[in-house]
Computed example of a mutant assay.
Amino acid sequence: MRFNFNSSEPIYLQVAQQVQEAIFTKTYLEGEQIPSTTEISRDFHINPATVLKGMNLLVADGLVEKKRGIGMFVAEGAQSKVVEKRRELFYQDEVVKLISEAQKLQISQTELMELIKRGF
């Protein structure tokens, strides 16, 4: 994990994103225990409350589950949830923007599809 302490993005969001990325890339597998709040805060010199806030976002999203007295674990189906979320973000952030720009350039749907095929 790497954190940018000079970023305008809050550290707790960076914690959540880093763990989510590890779930996405299967660094942390479903059912597997992830580093504890204490471990992350100690290893990266981050306030434990900040780390916990990030972890709680993942719990709320159903990606991580807390097992009292044992630790935090990647929830079943978490990887597919991350993929689904990223696909939707890709559509919203990239595809919609691409179509809008194509329309401004008067590129037809057929032409756009050909450009995409060419790029693949």
Rank of each mutant, 00 (worst) to 15 (best):
Val19Phe: 09
Gln20Phe: 02
Gln20Cys: 04
Glu21Cys: 11
Glu21Met: 11
Glu21Gln: 13
Ala22Phe: 09
Ala22Pro: 06
Ala22Asp: 06
Ala22Met: 07
Ile23Pro: 09
Ile23Asn: 01
Phe24Met: 05
Thr25Leu: 12
Lys26Pro: 08
Lys26Arg: 13
Lys26Cys: 06
Lys26Gly: 07
Lys26Ala: 08
Lys26Asn: 08
Thr27His: 05
Thr27Ala: 03
Tyr28Pro: 07
Tyr28Ala: 00
Leu29Val: 09
Leu29Thr: 15
Gly31Met: 06
Gly31Ile: 15
Gly31Phe: 09
Gly31Ala: 07
Gly31Gln: 00
Glu32Ala: 15
Gln33Asn: 10
Ile34Phe: 02
Ser36Phe: 03
Ser36Ala: 00
Glu39Thr: 14
Glu39Pro: 06
Glu39Tyr: 12
Glu39Gln: 12
Ile40Phe: 01
Ile40Val: 05
Ser41His: 08
Ser41Lys: 04
Ser41Gly: 09
Ser41Tyr: 04
Arg42Tyr: 13
Phe44Cys: 00
His45Tyr: 12
His45Glu: 09
His45Asn: 14
His45Ser: 08
His45Gly: 05
Ile46Ser: 00
Asn47Trp: 11
Asn47Ala: 03
Pro48Arg: 01
Pro48His: 10
Pro48Asn: 06
Pro48Leu: 02
Ala49Gly: 14
Val51Ala: 02
Val51His: 00
Val51Glu: 00
Leu52Tyr: 15
Leu52Gln: 12
Leu52Glu: 14
Lys53His: 09
Lys53Thr: 05
Gly54Phe: 04
Gly54Asp: 00
Gly54Leu: 00
Met55Leu: 12
Met55Asp: 00
Asn56Cys: 06
Asn56Gln: 12
Asn56Arg: 12
Asn56Ile: 06
Asn56Met: 10
Leu58Pro: 12
Val59Phe: 01
Val59Ile: 10
Val59Ala: 03
Ala60Asp: 05
Ala60Ile: 12
Ala60Tyr: 08
Asp61Trp: 14
Asp61Gly: 06
Asp61Ala: 07
Asp61Cys: 01
Gly62Asn: 06
Gly62Leu: 02
Gly62Thr: 04
Leu63Gly: 05
Leu63Lys: 01
Val64Thr: 03
Val64Glu: 00
Glu65Arg: 04
Lys66Cys: 04
Lys66Gly: 06
Lys66Trp: 09
Lys66Arg: 11
Lys67Trp: 13
Lys67Phe: 08
Lys67Ser: 13
Arg68Trp: 14
Arg68Lys: 08
Arg68Ser: 15
Arg68His: 15
Gly69Ser: 04
Gly69Thr: 14
Ile70Tyr: 07
Ile70His: 14
Ile70Arg: 14
Gly71Arg: 03
Met72Arg: 11
Met72Ala: 13
Phe73Val: 09
Phe73Cys: 01
Phe73Gln: 00
Val74Trp: 06
Val74Ser: 05
Ala75Asp: 08
Ala75Trp: 03
Ala75Asn: 12
Ala75Pro: 04
Ala75Glu: 09
Ala75His: 13
Glu76Arg: 03
Glu76Trp: 08
Glu76Asn: 11
Glu76Leu: 08
Gly77Gln: 01
Gly77Ala: 03
Gly77Met: 05
Ala78Thr: 13
Ala78His: 13
Ala78Trp: 15
Ala78Arg: 10
Ala78Asp: 10
Gln79Phe: 04
Gln79Asp: 01
Gln79His: 07
Gln79Arg: 08
Ser80Tyr: 14
Lys81Ala: 15
Lys81Gln: 02
Lys81Trp: 07
Val82Gly: 04
Val83Trp: 11
Val83Thr: 06
Glu84Phe: 13
Glu84Gln: 09
Lys85Asn: 01
Arg87Met: 12
Arg87Thr: 10
Arg87Val: 15
Arg87Ile: 15
Glu88Cys: 04
Glu88Tyr: 08
